[in-house]
Design a protein around this nucleic acid. Sequence first.
DNA 1: GGTTGGAAACTTTTT
DNA 2: GTTTCCAACC
Length: 752
Amino acid sequence: MENAIFDTLNDRQREAVLCTEGPLLILAGAGAGKTRVLTHRIAYLIDELGVPPYEIMAITFTNKAAEEMKSRVRSMVDFGESVWVATFHSSCVKILRRYIDRLGYDQDFVIYDTDDGKAVVRQALKALDLDPKMFKERAMLSLISAWKNEMISPEEALSDAGFDYRKEKEARIYASYERLLRKNNALDFDDLLLKTVELFRKEKDVLSYYQNRFRYIMVDEYQDTNTVQFELVYLLAKAHRNICVVGDDDQSIYRFRGADIRNILEFEEKFPGAKVVKLEQNYRSTTSILDAANAVIRHNRGRKEKHLWSENGTGAAVEFREYGSGNEEAEEIIRKVARETKLRGRSFKEFAVLYRTNAQSRLFEERCIAMNIPYRLVGGVNFYQRAEIKDLLAYLRTVATGRDDVAVRRIINVPKRGIGDTTVEKLQLYAAEHGISLMDAIGKAGEVPGVSRALPKLQVFAHLIGELREEAKTRPFDDLIRLVIEKTGYYGTLTELEKEKAEDKKENLQELIAKAKDFEVNWEDPEPPCLTDFLEEVALVADVDSMSEDDDRMLLMTLHSSKGLEFPTVFLAGLEEGLFPSYMSIDSGDPMDIEEERRLCYVGITRAMKELYISSARSRVLRGDLVYNNVSRFVRELPDSVWSEEIKEPRGFSNRFASRGSDDFSRKFNKFSVEKPEPAKPREKPAFGLSFEIKKADALDYGIGDRVNHQRFGEGVVKEILDGAKDYEVVIDFDDYGEKHLFASFAKLVKI
DNA sequence: GGTTGGAAACTTTTT
DNA sequence: GTTTCCAACC
């Protein structure tokens, strides 16, 4: 190959790039340059094989990944913008906007998020006269989602239920939920995929159009695909079989969302004759960090054997610290960031704190504010899920379609205009009886039985929406949003809240206005965008997507959000039994749940480029009350060699003995228990280093003069053995590292 | 019939 | 800590 850009690839990467025909599975370890492989592969197809760019499809999971790939492809090849690079969900939306009429929907369908979905479940329960306490919204939604991911229809769910009362009711709720969505001309997240598959199965001409259109298909993060997604890819690829999937089974962390790890483990069976390329050289992290990652993930059973390695050098040792409390953990971590940035001139964005649950973020946020550290909180409540934003968007949805009952219900009394639940129920009933939408029923409120007192208020509301619809025809979106705020007197409701919160909400609304403007300015199609386009964009963005690289702030996020990102210094916080791994996964009794948590830990470790600090807290406040957790099992799975820097420091070492008795260790490493040990002293200085269970051996199986092997230092000769109170101290002269003093129980020396 | 404030109950992770 | 529920008020 003459092209210089391909010279920067290693042999395995090049192999993956050159294998363009037929099914290909790229098993890419963390930081092994999979995005580079994908983009180079696209460039190779276009530049070397002359494939037209529009015949190439690359599917990702997040918008951020899609954006990154888009910009890389554009900078590498001419007409790069013609390559179809999009997320699963937005790809499906694009297809459905063109052809969904074949499934009996209008093309301007709206997309419901989980909040809307909850409202629909509530309505379904009411329609079926079922007790909402018996069938929880959230549980029902995840059940429905699971059914959809498995492509099980309401009818099938019903027949599967047999004579089980509960299952039968659940299936009926599902059926009712479906009817309501269809009536509102709405699709939920799962529908986007499911309806596309339905479309392909039903309309052969549509399927073959897209099969011919996408002659080369690439799927990123393949380990996170679920059954519908697999089916979608399978349908598209089965004609030409040029399907390349990239993934890492060790980074599969979305099982709870229906991701099926078997999709990657069984790829070769699903696509016979598939070629497999493993990328194991890591370009991101130091060897210390990779050792830690490898050691932890080794404890999982169902996985493809891999061993990450790098040429980046050993680097700083991974450090573990146990703090007295969650507060102290946050304080020390943020203090460390403050020191590093102030004293060593490092920038804030080099640091990231990763945690298991969103609830943990607050502690770090508070410390950042207190210490004046600029930070960015990723995830938590998604910008577009905030109440005020959703309210405004519900107005826009109502203005845009008029069929969206869920949106109308949300805003009919926001701000308060004296239209209560009873009135809405009557209107809804009337609408159902006459087969019209809620908004239409409001227009005819005079004819609705039982509506008298609320009638003038309803007329005002209907008039308001009518007016906004008129204005929407000419105004740009940002202007329209301003108008909604003004006409509804939305800010009026906010001032009643505490000042600070109201300010926050106003700022959020300003940001929404800015985003709307942005959207219009960046619109690329010659056709001007309509309100539906904007609402669609907004429905499909995640929080990570809007993370910008340029502002210098440290990052706080869950382990899930951190996937695909990298940071010079990572703090993995809250490594405690019950928190991480979560009590849910411990209690379920399914070892697969713990394995998923372990993969999550692996993802967290491999985000780090140069430094990794792992920590836990002995006590922390969880939903109001103080709990005492044991150190996570994952900490114990970390390799001894990782801690050797500490062992070289006698000072840290003696500290460790001074502050921790061995009873403490056995308690800590016991399985998660509810038994509460004595409370931690709040301001106690934390001990450095990892405290392994120190158990003095009765006798050592090596003596002075023997050659022994150490995991990290290699081979050496035992010079001296000192009998200490709690352990033997062994002096070894290593061939490569010289003389070292090690403790027998830590060093795990093996006689050769 | 609608609003409001306080008590109760629930928080794993999210495209 | 935060969202939902209910009962007393308007």
